[in-house]
């Protein structure tokens, strides 16, 4: 199932980049898709971590939520840049990463970096070191709204 979906995605990728519709080129595209999938399988890089197929739906929903967060945080950062007395008080804090699987932890850390105003400095074990532009950013993270939204990879608890 994962292989089929990978192959479909790679073929769509090929088609978007090339845009050819003649028979010969389509066949060549299918051949190169096959070769790519075969090589990826031999390299063992199509697994639950590099391509979380089983999380597709929840990841999609999570990304919608993340877009909203990015918008809100961007407006906040813009306000801070444009305020006459640069209104920042940078903080470095350690936060717990309560997710159970490595994949979810990385998704969480990545989301923190993606939202403006907070950057993950380090992720080791169950701890995140976060640099934030203001107290409010840290407080929002400590309330754990985002941590709750992160899709949990239940099959691969580390």
């Amino acid at each position: 199932m994962r292989i089929v979906s990978t192959a479909t995605l790679i073929f769509i990728f090929w088609f978007v980049l090339s845009g050819h519709t003649s028979n010969l080129l389509i066949i060549l595209g299918i051949a190169s898709t096959g070769l790519t999938v075969y090589l990826s399988r031999r390299m063992n890089i199509i697994d639950a971590e590099s391509y979380p197929f089983h999380l597709s739906f929840s990841l999609f929903r999570y990304n919608l939520y993340l877009f909203k967060e990015i918008l809100i945080a961007n407006i906040d950062v813009i306000k801070r840049i444009l305020s006459p007395s640069v209104a920042i008080s940078p903080q470095v804090t350690e936060l717990p990463a309560s997710q159970h699987s490595d994949l979810s932890k990385v998704i969480y850390a990545n989301s923190i970096t993606l939202t403006p105003g907070t950057v993950t400095l380090e992720l080791s074990g169950g701890k995140l070191k976060v640099h934030a532009l203001s107290h409010e950013g840290i407080e929002d993270l400590e309330q754990g709204n985002m941590a709750k939204q992160v899709p949990e990879d239940k099959d691969h608890i580390s």
Partner: peptide
């Protein structure tokens, strides 16, 4: 924060 992250939006 200013550079890396306003980039995305």
């Amino acid at each position: 924060h200013a550079a890396g992250t306003t980039d995305t939006l």
